[in-house]
Design a protein around this nucleic acid. Sequence first.
DNA 1: CGATGACATAAGCATACACTTATGTGATGC
DNA 2: GCATCACATAAGTGTATGCTTATGTCATCG
Lengths: 104, 104
Amino acid sequence: MIESDIFKALADPTRYAIFEKLAAGSMNASALREGMTISQPAMSQHLAVLRNAGLVREERQGRFVNYEVDPEGLALIARWLAKYRAYWPSRVDALKSLLKDMDQ
Amino acid sequence: MIESDIFKALADPTRYAIFEKLAAGSMNASALREGMTISQPAMSQHLAVLRNAGLVREERQGRFVNYEVDPEGLALIARWLAKYRAYWPSRVDALKSLLKDMDQ
DNA sequence: CGATGACATAAGCATACACTTATGTGATGC
DNA sequence: GCATCACATAAGTGTATGCTTATGTCATCG
């Protein structure tokens, strides 16, 4: 996976909204569609992109497929962000030392 | 600016590479092109996108325009990431309390 | 068993977008 | 002045991608 792929997954406003909704609580694909004007295949395709990016993971539950935020994707972004800590504004300087611990 | 715009700016591999290069040290548009097979207008357009996303800022220096990483863009991503700290893996749990300080 | 429901995949289409060539703008130097 | 350099903008083009409709797959239920 190219590093820009995870950003590409979040670049689409619809996909971004889906991720935000999932972050508020895990649910299945049908529940995700509620309140959004989006077709079933479109939702399925977006979820596949988010899953391939490591931002979301799925779990079969009978006929339903439950989706939830995958911490690994967020960790990837966190590690990416840590690379540029030299440029962070001073008011978050306190983070510098702790992010160092994340670098393995 | 829609929140997904900053991710859209980093979604393109070429633009991502430009940002990474700038993070290694500020330089002008011509210097950025060295080592990359990219036309001058393409570079200019990419830099405009990165600037509009708040990831990069410019400073006129005579005929040259010096570009550098804009900490505001990274801070935006950091604040975004902080919203989902509930999902971060346990090994970065130590970050939780500090990121709370960033929430204004 | 067949019917239905939840979701995935296929194929086609329309728009977005990253590129190109050409031209414009603004600063330095002769 | 005008030639040149560094960069921005305009306009056009090909491809990527997000959508659609149609169909496939898999599990539950009667």
